[in-house]
Design a protein around this nucleic acid. Structure first.
Length: 225
DNA sequence: GACCAGGCACATC
DNA sequence: GATGTGCATGGT
């Protein structure tokens, strides 16, 4: 059936990407809190810019929930300036910190002990935290097996016609979660590999030359997006 | 100099 | 409900 075939196929995609690129070592952060901060800062932004912003926070000694939430908006905005959208992201970080401080007394351990679907709803209720950011926090900071769907994930799947072009975030997420073993380490690596192949090949202007997924394209070839 | 990056909220029709 | 726009820096 389609389900069985897709299960093999998705796993096959993962195996190819892993063979081609090796483990990606995500999330590139030194602590769960740093992962959370990075998840907000990387919204529609290249990771390189985010690294500079996080380095600023670390150098200033404010990379903890208590220290960060004590900053004034202007101070935080200035520190994260290299990540772009800095006024917007300063507000979003403050919104998220407000949840962490008020509901969990600033303790990530306490937050991650909460019921997973309840925590997801709680994160989504924060202004500035959408599905991808929430899932990134759940998977990469809390190590809860939730599949993260980003631009590249959707693009790679739709381009190869592995999923309908109209599929929304939840549909794509559910696709992965229902066709793969629910394993945080697998979801972690798979998502990182999809970002890698997306960055390198499956862009708006496709560069299929040398792509490890090339021979898996349907007969019709790459579809316009 | 245009185009793009590991989104999201909000306005408008 | 669908579609468009603002947010901002830095690399290709």
């Amino acid at each position: 059936m389609a389900g069985r075939m897709m299960a093999m196929r998705l796993r096959d995609v993962f195996d190819r990407l892993l063979a081609a690129y090796g483990p990606q070592g995500w999330w590139p952060g030194e602590s769960p809190f740093e992962v959370i901060v990075g998840a907000v800062l990387t919204q529609n932004t290249s990771w390189k810019n985010v690294e500079k912003a996080i380095a600023n926070l670390r150098d200033s000694g404010v990379l903890s929930p208590q220290r960060l939430s004590a900053l004034r908006h202007e101070e935080l905005a200035e520190l994260i300036q290299p990540a772009g959208y800095y006024r917007l992201k300063a507000r979003r970080l403050m919104n998220l910190l407000n949840l962490l401080m008020t509901a969990y007394d600033g303790s990530l351990e306490a937050m991650f002990e909460a019921d997973m679907s309840e925590l997801r709803e709680q994160l989504l209720s924060v202004n500035g935290i959408g599905p991808e950011t929430a899932d990134s926090i759940l998977l990469y900071a809390a190590e809860i097996p939730t599949f993260v769907v980003d631009t590249y994930t959707a693009r790679v799947l739709k381009r190869h016609a592995w999923i309908e072009a109209e599929a929304d975030y939840h549909t794509i997420e559910d696709h992965f979660e229902s066709h793969l073993e629910k394993d945080a380490a697998l979801f972690n690596e798979f998502h990182a590999l999809l970002v890698r192949v997306g960055n390198q090949h499956c862009r708006r202007q496709p560069k299929c030359e040398g792509c490890p997924l090339e021979c898996m394209l349907p007969e019709s070839g790459v579809q316009e997006m």
